[in-house]
Every structure is written in structure tokens, then in C-alpha cells.
């Protein structure tokens, strides 16, 4: 249950940021797409919109909000569940509400505002999707938004990380059916985030080579993962010198995406934007490097004898 940023810009008169800090993490988000925008339907812009911030601490974004709700750490799921009950006029006990760190008055007021808006939108950030019960939290919020449609128009949208994370996610989905955490070790895509995610594979020492594009795991991953990257042949494609490029066996300098390399970036609402380079780079693009590596690999004999594997299996093992 989601929409594009343009819809929010045009129509959303009630915006809830849940567990994100857009003022600092997505600086252009407020001004370009959401609360600051004037539109045909909301001619007074910020004055026509109500903004609510739900977070465990008072960030810079919270100061920009009309209402700030400070939820106790790890209690997002409980809070969403309570809201799902309250919108349907179901009974909720005082202790349950107290557990979330909020008051009944604050929640009743929130529910009343949610129901009386014309177009509501939840943005949920890393704070919500990366804490305890991550999938559960975002699923619960999507359900709450779906249920709100019995009263008014309501949507929910994740605020994703930097770079072209969304693009990678979108393409992996159309090619393999899954967004990340995928293994091809049986010849077809399988998915298990806690097992096949890059960090898990590295920490266990399961892979014997690494090929890294547009990321710097050497700066962000736990030490055992970094140690394994140092042990195995690691190839890194990056326009800059990074932690990863320093530990890599091979660093190929590539043209910077969007500055000197063309391509497509997917916005966090999955709308594709063309990248039109302003400068020419002496370096090859990531795409060109990968294509040339692929061509070189295609020259080598296939790693399995022809016909040794079925083309298709009707039941996965």
C-alpha cells in the first residue's frame, strides 16, 4: 500500500514520519516532496498539512513536526497494534498503553486526526525497519495504513537508504523474485536474509571471492567480515579510494554514477530517474567493466559439463 512522492506532494494533508530522521538523512525530502510543498489541492503548503513524528529520541526532524510522539525503544510493534485496535474502537488497557511510553490522550488525539484527514501518509525509516522484529514492524504499519482506508485515503512508504539501494532492490526482484539476501549456489535464486546476506556469508567465511560495486563494506561491516574480505581475492569497483578499495586485491577506478556515467537511479518510491552525465570521465563506467569481465568469463569453458544439470526443476529442494 504505497504511492509515489508526487501523490504526497499533491494531496497528503497528514504525514507521519515513523522512526526516520528525514531532516538529516534525506535533507531534500521535506522541501522537495512533502511538508513544504504547495499544490493545487493544498495551496497553503505547510499550513495545510499536519506532520507527526514518531521516534525513540527527539531528532532535528521532531522539531519540525506539529506533534512529536516519543515511543519507548523496541515498542513500535506494540504501538502500531494499539492504533489498529483504537481505530476500530476496540478496548485497550491502560498498562498496554503505558508500556509504549505514550498517553491515552495523545493516542486518541492521533487516531482522531488520522480519521479526519483527507489523505494520510506514513513514511517509515530505518528506525522502524531495522529494529527488533523488523519485518513485523513494517508489515504492521502497512496493515494499519490498509485498514485506515475504511475511513479515509491512507498510504505508507519506506524511506530507504542512500545511493541507488532501491535500484538494486528493484532489479534483483525482477530477475530473481527477491530483493536481497539471495544465493545462486544451486543454480537458481533462493532467499534467506539471515543466512545469505553479504554480511552473514562473509562472517561465516563461506565465499572464496568478493566482487564489490558501489559500496564500502570495509567501513561498515563487523570486523570478522572485514577480516574475511582481506583473506580472499576481493575486487572493488569504485570512483574513489575507500576502506574497501584499500583492502581489496584489485581496485578498478570507475566513472562516478550520475556525474560522469549515465544510467538509471530508482527513487525510494521506485520511480526511475535517468542519470545524465555532465562531465566526461577518463575512467570506464561500472557497466562497461562488468560487461568486459562477463565477456572474458564467457570465453572460458562452463564450470559444469553440458547437460549435467536439468534445465528446470518443478519442485525446489
Amino acid at each position: 500500500m504505497t504511492c509515489t512522492l508526487g501523490e504526497v506532494k499533491q494531496r497528503a494533508d497528514f504525514i507521519v514520519y515513523w522512526g526516520g530522521n528525514p531532516a538529516e538523512c534525506h535533507p531534500r525530502h521535506f522541501t522537495k516532496y512533502t511538508i513544504m510543498q504547495k499544490s493545487k489541492f493544498l495551496p497553503r503548503g505547510r499550513k495545510d498539512r499536519t506532520m507527526v513524528m514518531v521516534d525513540i529520541r527527539e531528532t532535528k526532524s521532531a522539531k519540525a513536526a506539529n506533534i512529536f510522539l516519543q515511543v519507548k525503544p523496541g515498542k513500535d510493534f506494540e504501538l502500531i497494534t494499539i492504533l489498529r485496535a483504537l481505530i476500530k474502537d476496540q478496548q485497550v488497557g491502560d498498562e498496554q498503553i503505558a508500556e509504549t511510553g505514550l498517553t491515552r490522550e495523545a493516542l486518541d488525539d492521533l487516531v482522531q486526526r488520522m480519521k479526519s484527514c483527507k489523505f494520510g501518509c506514513f513514511f517509515f525509516g530505518m528506525g522502524l525497519s531495522m529494529t527488533r522484529g523488523k519485518h513485523m514492524n513494517s508489515a504492521a504499519l502497512l496493515t494499519l495504513a490498509a485498514e485506515m482506508n475504511a475511513f479515509t485515503k491512507f498510504v505508507a512508504m519506506p524511506m530507504r537508504g542512500h545511493g541507488n539501494v532501491t535500484g538494486a532492490d528493484v532489479i534483483m526482484r525482477w530477475q530473481t523474485g527477491y530483493p536481497f539476501g539471495i544465493t545462486f549456489n544451486r543454480g537458481y535464486p533462493r532467499y534467506n536474509p539471515g543466512e545469505f546476506s553479504t554480511v552473514d556469508v562473509l562472517v561465516r567465511g563461506d565465499c572464496d571471492a568478493a566482487f564489490i560495486i558501489g559500496a564500502d563494506p570495509g567501513a561498515t561491516m563487523p570486523q570478522p567480515a572485514i577480516n574475511h574480505l582481506k583473506r580472499i581475492p576481493t575486487i572493488c569497483l569504485d570512483p574513489h579510494v575507500t576502506h574497501t578499495s584499500k583492502l581489496a586485491r584489485v581496485h578498478i577506478t570507475t566513472a562516478a554514477q550520475g556525474i560522469s556515467a549515465p544510467g538509471t537511479a530508482y527513487r525510494m518510491d521506485e520511480i526511475p530517474m535517468p542519470l545524465k552525465p555532465a562531465l566526461k570521465s577518463p575512467y570506464p563506467t561500472d557497466e562497461e567493466v562488468v560487461r568486459r569481465i562477463n565477456e572474458a568469463i564467457a570465453q572460458k569453458p562452463f564450470w559444469l559439463p553440458e547437460g549435467s544439470q536439468p534445465q528446470m526443476i518443478s519442485t525446489q529442494v
Binding site: 528493484v170 526482484r173 525482477w174 530477475q175 530473481t176 523474485g177 527477491y178 530483493p179 545462486f184 544451486r186 543454480g187 537458481y188 535464486p189 533462493r190 532467499y191 521506485e270 564467457a298 562452463f302 553440458e306 544439470q309 536439468p310 534445465q311 528446470m312 526443476i313 518443478s314 519442485t315 525446489q316
Partner: peptide, 27 residues
């Protein structure tokens, strides 16, 4: 593509195409 994201349980019980030199894998 959104539907693909919403049906991981289905991907797991369906037929799988195995990669060969000339063919990509898929579900």
C-alpha cells in the same frame, strides 16, 4: 514487480529454471 516482492512464499514452492551458459536462472 511489487507483486513479486509480496509473494516470497510462492517463489519457494514453484518451478525453478537453472542457469546454464546460455540461459539465466529464474522462478
Amino acid at each position: 514487480n511489487f507483486a513479486r516482492a509480496m509473494t516470497p512464499e510462492d517463489h519457494r514452492r514453484t518451478q525453478a529454471f537453472i542457469r546454464t551458459q546460455s540461459r539465466r536462472s529464474g522462478l
